[in-house]
């Protein structure tokens, strides 16, 4: 395992006029690591995810990424072309609302195959086979391959989104509340799938969630955000069992026990 961080933020800030989205974020993500960003609505966690995934431009600060070829690049200074290549070949993004992450009128197989074509696959049979393999891995049966995701349930759409992202073997996947709005049994299936992918592929993940149980189950480390800042960061079990910051203590103690 390489000890140079995969992704490294320094002094990252985002302001909307006078309002703070994120302020002075220093954060390193390592290879194979799952980092959960938790906090309440409006804490800046989605803004931070947007900055780290270059979907938003930062107001100040820097963001570096170590590519597959070992070269570290400054993400602020990438051309739009370079950024798009990176997004296609090394990254994935799972949206909370699957409609934003999928093409709703394209078949399930097409949704997955499209990503392969974007990285240069041309042989129709091979694309279809690879797409079918990934659909099977996310437990979507082959007879749904030609159906559009408009006909899928919420849980199936999320699994399709994962297949669409994973088919190009990304090194880093950003997830924004991937289990939000799903029934708990559907959520458990999705969490199980994500855990399996991390164990098998050594994938790194930055996941935003307001659900501490999801953070505990999936992540190695947890960062707690409040008012645009990280108030506490540490090992997942340490942050939840021995929280240091007053706000984290409040957050942890507010969770309903089952």
């Amino acid at each position: 395992m390489n000890h140079v961080p995969l992704l490294s933020a320094r002094g990252l800030s985002k302001r909307y006029g006078a309002r703070i989205g994120c302020e002075a974020i220093d954060l390193d993500l390592h290879e194979g690591e799952v980092l959960a960003i938790v906090g309440e609505s409006g804490s800046g966690k989605s803004t931070l995810l947007g900055l780290m995934s270059t979907q938003l431009d930062s107001t100040t600060g820097s963001l570096r990424y170590r590519r597959r070829d070992g070269i570290s690049v400054d993400l602020d200074h990438l051309s739009e072309m370079e950024r798009r290549i990176l997004l296609r070949t090394e990254w994935g993004f799972i949206q909370q609302d699957a409609r934003l992450g999928l093409r709703m009128n394209v078949s399930a197989g097409g949704n997955v195959g499209e990503r392969l074509m974007a990285v240069g696959w041309r042989h129709y049979g091979k694309i279809r086979n690879e797409a079918q393999d990934w659909l099977a891995r996310v437990e979507i049966s082959g007879d749904r391959m030609d159906d559009a995701p408009t006909t899928f349930s919420g849980g199936m759409r999320q699994r399709l989104q994962i297949a669409r992202n994973m088919v190009t073997r990304p090194r880093l996947v950003f997830m924004d509340e991937p289990t939000g709005g799903l029934d708990v049994s559907v959520q458990a299936r999705l969490l199980d799938l994500i855990r399996g992918l991390v164990a098998e592929t050594g994938l790194s993940i930055v996941i935003v969630t307001h659900d501490l149980a999801v953070a505990r189950l999936l992540s190695h480390r947890i960062a707690v955000m409040r008012q645009g800042r990280i108030v506490e960061i540490g090992l997942a079990d340490q942050v939840l069992e021995d929280p240091q910051d007053p706000y984290t203590q409040l957050l942890v103690s507010s969770v309903l026990q089952v």
Binding site: Q238, E241, D242
Partner: peptide, 8 residues
Amino acid sequence: KMIFGSYL
């Protein structure tokens, strides 16, 4: 827990 690192 301190030895395991789940407590500081």
